[in-house]
Design a protein around this nucleic acid. Structure first.
Length: 221
DNA sequence: AATTGTTTTCCTGGTT
DNA sequence: AAACCAGGAAAACAAT
């Protein structure tokens, strides 16, 4: 178990450095948020609160939409809340919170090692698990990482969520690598992006290689 | 095991 | 001519 984690870790250091920009903690201090030391089922109210705070900061969720009284609960209760419960408690933010929580739960459970003393490993696993698998999240995290995207993808106007693909084929290669698909190219990647127009994840910008995050995406800014 | 949502693949035709 | 953009159709995959 330990070895596989280490192996997983070393094979993903570059990805970690890519996404750490969107996570709100200072790697030099090495202190992960409180809640990462336990599986959600065992969180206290305080952990839940801490996690909420973390989500608001990291994903730029507007706290004004969140009814905090609905979240004054223990981890077990939080875990038993349905997607509808989350929606009731926090609208669209609730849906995001719900999927973030489910992410943490499934990735934590999969490893089956939650005993004390492994806080740091849990932290690594959670970070790895947070590598979002969706294309738009991949782009968002790349943009947010601000480091060595080496002119492949850049903000045009971050306030408005407008970004430009600078090296289209290089970007496609990165995406292909993430998906273990060496047949990926920009032609296909861009088709996937165009599917996002109808779901509001992206909005059309009528300029070549320029895209804009839509109302159903979050976490950029 | 079935359903639904997302991504990939391929394609035809149009634009810069 | 090369690189993009628009979407339809359908297959493949992933998540639930």
């Amino acid at each position: 178990m330990l070895l596989s984690v280490i192996r997983l870790y070393t094979s993903h250091v570059t990805e970690i450095s890519c996404i750490k920009g969107c996570l709100n903690f200072d790697p030099s201090s090495g202190i992960p948020p409180l809640w990462t030391s336990l599986p959600p089922e065992h969180w206290t109210r305080h952990h839940v609160c801490d996690w909420l705070q973390y989500c608001c900061d990291s994903y730029k969720l507007d706290a004004a939409y969140i009814s905090f009284s609905h979240f004054n609960v223990l981890g077990v209760q939080l875990c038993s809340m349905t997607k509808e419960d989350f929606t009731e408690a926090a609208g669209i933010c609730g849906q995001h919170l719900y999927s973030i929580l489910q992410d943490i739960r499934t990735n934590g459970e999969a490893e089956g090692d939650t005993e004390g003393g492994s806080a740091c490993l849990m932290w690594i696993l959670i970070i790895l698990g947070m590598q979002s698998s969706h294309l738009w999240e991949f782009l968002r995290d790349l943009l947010l990482s601000s480091e060595d995207t080496s002119g492949i993808l850049d903000w045009e106007d971050q306030e408005q969520g407008i970004f430009r693909v600078v090296k289209s084929e290089a970007l496609a290669q990165m995406w292909g690598k993430r998906k273990h698909n060496d047949r990926m190219n920009y032609e296909k990647l861009s088709r996937a992006l165009r599917h996002y127009y109808k779901t509001g994840i992206l909005e059309r910008v009528d300029r070549r290689l320029v895209y804009k995050f839509g109302k159903n995406s979050y976490g950029w800014h």
